[in-house]
Design a protein around this nucleic acid. Structure first.
Lengths: 198, 198, 198, 198
DNA sequence: TATGAATGAGTCTTCATTCAT
DNA sequence: TATGAATGAAGACTCATTCAT
C-alpha cells in the first residue's frame, strides 16, 4: 500500500520556505538547490510537487497574497465602515515581521511583474482585490453616515490604495525612517482626512 | 598612442543599454552575455569599463536616478510652490515611455534593495532626495500663501511621497487600468486636496 | 530510489585521472574542462563529487601521498633496520613509471606550496612522515648493531631525507642522465656510507 | 630622433619583477596584467620586449640562474678546493631572502619542467653547471691533498648535488623546521663527511 | 616606441532539469 | 513516491593577445 501523503500540505510547506527565502536572501539566491537544502527535502522531491521553478515561484506569490487576505478576513470579522478600513489598512502595512516579509516577497515579484505579463496579472489581481475591499468598506462608511453621501468613493479608494502601497514600499526601503510608529502616524493622518471628508 | 576614448561616455552608453534591458527583460535575464549581444559590444569590452556586474548594476540605478533628477531640474526652472510641486509630481509618474522604463528599472532594484543593505541605501537616498524637494516646494507654497501657515508640512510631504510612489507602482502593475489619464486624474485629486488645505 | 554509488570510489577514480594529468600535462593545463574531457565524465559530474577545484587538487596530492605510503607499508612488511631503510629508499625514488608520475605530481605541488601555506603544510606533513619512518629504521639498525651506538641518528636521517629528495628531483629534471641505474648506484653509495658508519 | 632606450636593461627590470611575483604569489597568479600593474608599465609595453608570456617566463628562470651563478663567481674569487666548495654550497642554500626567493621561483619552474621538455632542458642545464662546478672544486681539493687521491669524485659530486638540492627544497617546504641554522648544521655535516673521506 | 582599446577563448562555478532506479 | 546521479547550458570573470593609433 502506498504511503498516503497530503500533497497540498507538502506543497504549502515548501512554498512557505520559498517565501521565507525570497524575503531574506532575494529571488536571485532562491535556487532549487538552496530550497532543498533549507527544507531538508531532496531536489527531486520538490520537482515532484512543482513542475518547474517558475511554477514554484508563481505558487509562492499566490500563497502570500491568499494568506494576507485570509488574515484580513479573520481580523475584520464583525467590523465595518471606517473602523474596518483602518484595521484593513493597518494589517497591510509592513509593521510586523510577518507582513514585512510579505512586502519583501512582493517587491521581489514586482521586478518580475514589470517585465512579465503573467506575473503582472497576478499582481494586478491582488491590487484589484484590495481596491474592491476598500471600496466596500467605504460604501459601508457612507451608508453609516461616516462619510458624506455626495462624495465620489472611487478616487478616495484609489487614494488610499496608493498611499498604502507607497507607504509599504518606502517602509521597506527606509526602514529606519519609516518605523512602525511613523507608519501608524501616517495611517492616522490618512484616516483623519477621511473623517474630514465627512 | 592608442585611441583615446571618453570612458565616462562609454560607461554611460553601456549603462543606457543595461537600463533598457532591465526595463524590458528584467534583472534575471540581464546577463553580461546578453548585454554584450544586445549592445553589439564584446563581453570583454564591458569588463573593460566595469569591474564586475555588481558595479554595472549599481551604476545603472544611480544613472537612472540622476537622470530623472536632472530632468526635474530643467523642467522646474523658474517654477515654485504648488505649481512646481505638481510639475515635479507629474514628471515622476510613469506616463511617458521614458519614465515608465525608469519605474520598471526601479522596481527591479526594489527586490534587491529589500534584501541588500547596499542597494537599500541607494534607494533610500533617492526617496530622501524626493522628500526634500517636495518639502522645499511646500515651504515655498506656504510662504506664497498657497497653504495655511499653521499646517505641518512634513506629514503632507510624506503623504505626497507615498501617493506618488504607490501610484507609480500600481500604474506599472495595472497599466491598462491606471492609464496615463487616470494617473493625471489621481494627481489632480491629490493637488486638489492640497488646495483644500489652504 | 536513485542509483546508489560509492562516492569515495568515484572520487578516487577522478583523483586518479587528475593525478595522471598533473603528471603528464601539468597543473596549468589540468583544468576541470580538460579533466572532464579526458575522463569522459561531464563537468557537472566532477562538481558532484568535489566542491571546487581547490578541493580536487588537495585531495589529489593527499591521495598520492597516501598511496605511496601504503605501498611502502606493504613492501616493508617483515623488514627492519638497514634492509628496510634501503627498500624504503628505493621505493621512494622515481624509478618506476608509477613513482615517476608521483614525483611529477609532487613537483607540481611544490610550486604551489612555495607560495601557499595550506599546500605547504600538506607537503611539510609528508616530509615529516618520511623523516619519522627513516628515523625508526635507523633506530632499529642501531638496535641491531648495524650502526654504531654512539652515532647521532637525526643528522643521519636528515642526510638521507635530503639525498632522496634531491635525487628524486634531479632524476625528474635530468631523466636521461639520472637514469634508473644511476639512481640505484647513488642509492648504493648512500647505503655504503651508512655501513661505513658502523 | 627616436628615444634611445636600453632594451636589455628594461627587459631585466621586468624580469626582476616577474621573479619577485613568482616567488611571492606563484606562477598561477603571475599574469601579464598583474606584472604590468606591479611594474607600472603598460601591458603593451611588456609585450614589446617579450614576444609572449612563455618567453617572459623562460627569460625569468634563465635570469635567476645566471644571477645566482654570477653571485657565486664573485664570492668564490680566490677560493679553491673544499673551502670553495663549502662557500659555493652555502651560497646555494635558501638562507637569505634573496636565495629563498630564488628557490621559490625555481620550484615554480620544476612543475613546468616536469611536463615540458623545453623547461626541463633549462633546469637540466643548471644542474649540469652545478655539477661541473662541484667537480672542479673536488678536483682542486684532491690536487691539494684535501681528499684522498684514489677516491672517485663523480659519486661524491652527485652526493653533494643531491643533498644541496634536497635540503633546499625541504627548507622551503618546512621553513620553520629547516631554519637557517639547521641548514648550516646540515652543511657542516656534509662537509665533515668530505673531510672524513680524506 | 608605446599605449590601452578591444577581443574572444577559456576559467571555475552554479543552475534547472532529466532520468534511472 | 521519492531520490540523487548526471548533464550541459549559462553564469560571472580572467586572461593573453592583437591592433589601431
Amino acid at each position: 500500500m502506498p504511503k498516503i501523503v497530503d500533497h497540498d500540505e507538502r506543497r504549502e510547506r515548501i512554498v512557505e520556505i520559498v517565501a521565507e527565502m525570497l524575503a531574506t536572501v532575494g529571488a536571485e539566491k532562491t535556487t532549487i538547490r538552496e530550497i532543498a537544502r533549507q527544507s531538508g527535502y531532496s531536489r527531486g522531491f520538490i520537482e515532484h510537487y512543482f513542475h518547474n521553478k517558475e511554477e514554484l515561484i508563481t505558487k509562492t506569490i499566490r500563497w502570500i497574497n491568499e494568506r494576507s487576505l485570509a488574515r484580513a478576513d479573520v481580523a475584520l470579522k464583525g467590523k465595518s465602515g471606517l473602523t474596518a478600513l483602518k484595521a484593513f489598512s493597518k494589517l497591510s502595512l509592513p509593521i510586523t515581521p510577518e507582513t514585512r516579509n510579505e512586502w519583501k516577497v512582493r517587491m521581489q515579484f514586482w521586478g518580475m511583474a514589470a517585465v512579465s505579463d503573467e506575473h503582472r496579472r497576478e499582481q494586478s489581481k491582488r491590487i484589484h482585490v484590495s481596491e474592491k475591499i476598500i471600496l466596500e468598506f467605504l460604501q459601508q462608511a457612507q451608508d453609516n453616515n461616516e462619510l458624506k453621501t455626495d462624495i465620489d468613493l472611487l478616487p478616495l479608494a484609489h487614494s488610499l490604495l496608493h498611499r498604502l502601497n507607497g507607504l509599504g514600499c518606502n517602509a521597506i526601503l527606509r526602514p529606519t525612517y519609516f518605523t512602525r510608529q511613523r507608519q501608524l502616524q501616517a495611517l492616522d493622518h490618512i484616516m483623519a482626512e477621511f473623517i474630514k471628508a465627512r
